[in-house]
Design a protein around this nucleic acid. Structure first.
Lengths: 122, 122
DNA sequence: CAGAATCCAACCGGATACTG
DNA sequence: CAGTATCCGGTTGGATTCTG
């Protein structure tokens, strides 16, 4: 994200360092911005939560989505999957320190969206 | 985002207040999280920028996307479109105070994505 | 220059059914 | 319980072409 717009004596514009795809903002957005991702992580900020409980907590998301986003979060090291030896088997998802650091970003997002001038009817 | 997981004496779980779709995080994400949206707003934090310059600054985005996201940002009051009476016509995009408030969120996102433990090969 | 219009392939995500 | 598998309509977004 260090693109610069320069201009020569003739007033011609050129760009050095265009903001290429893996720019930090886009990168972060692709990790935290997926549908339901924020909500899921949010619900894990306290105690570990089990799969079906999560799908109930995140109203509206299909189990397919929950599963997919959980894999995604795990792949990025934000959560940990923990299988409990019970019958029937139960699985807990736990937030990692790295995942916890993301909650700050999510909360900034939440606060921003909350205190917005109510013109977001669009 | 105020869902609660409760448990009765028999250990049965129930959820009150599931996290419904318009939860603040998701809301904010739908506004700032669209592809290229962050980058575009980021590049407007200084001086006003013109359309083609923007599409050059945000490397990889098609003009169609730039136009679409610009209208989106304008609809949400984050930027302003300003037409300059020149020949040929030129258009500037300017960030609004509200848009500027979003930069804080974007920067939190950027910093988080930057200082991450390098395991995001996935 | 600043877009709008069109086309189309790829992906997303919901519904449903099935499994260990 | 905790998923996976499959189907499938809707949306996304890039490429290209056209316009005032």
């Amino acid at each position: 994200m260090d693109a610069q717009l320069t201009e020569d004596k003739q007033g011609r514009r050129a760009v050095t360092n265009p903001c290429l795809a893996p720019c930090p903002i886009e990168q972060g957005m692709r990790i935290l911005g997926g549908k339901w991702t924020g909500s899921i992580l949010w619900h894990l900020q306290g105690e570990p939560v089990r799969f079906n409980d999560l799908s109930r907590l995140v109203g509206g998301a299909s189990k397919k989505m929950i599963a997919e986003r959980l894999r995604h979060l795990e792949a990025h090291g934000l959560i940990t999957r923990r299988v409990l030896s019970t019958a029937p088997v139960s699985v807990e998802y736990v937030i990692t320190p790295h995942g916890r650091s993301a909650l700050g970003v999510l909360d900034a997002m939440r606060r921003w969206a909350d205190e917005r001038p109510a013109l977001d009817n669009a």
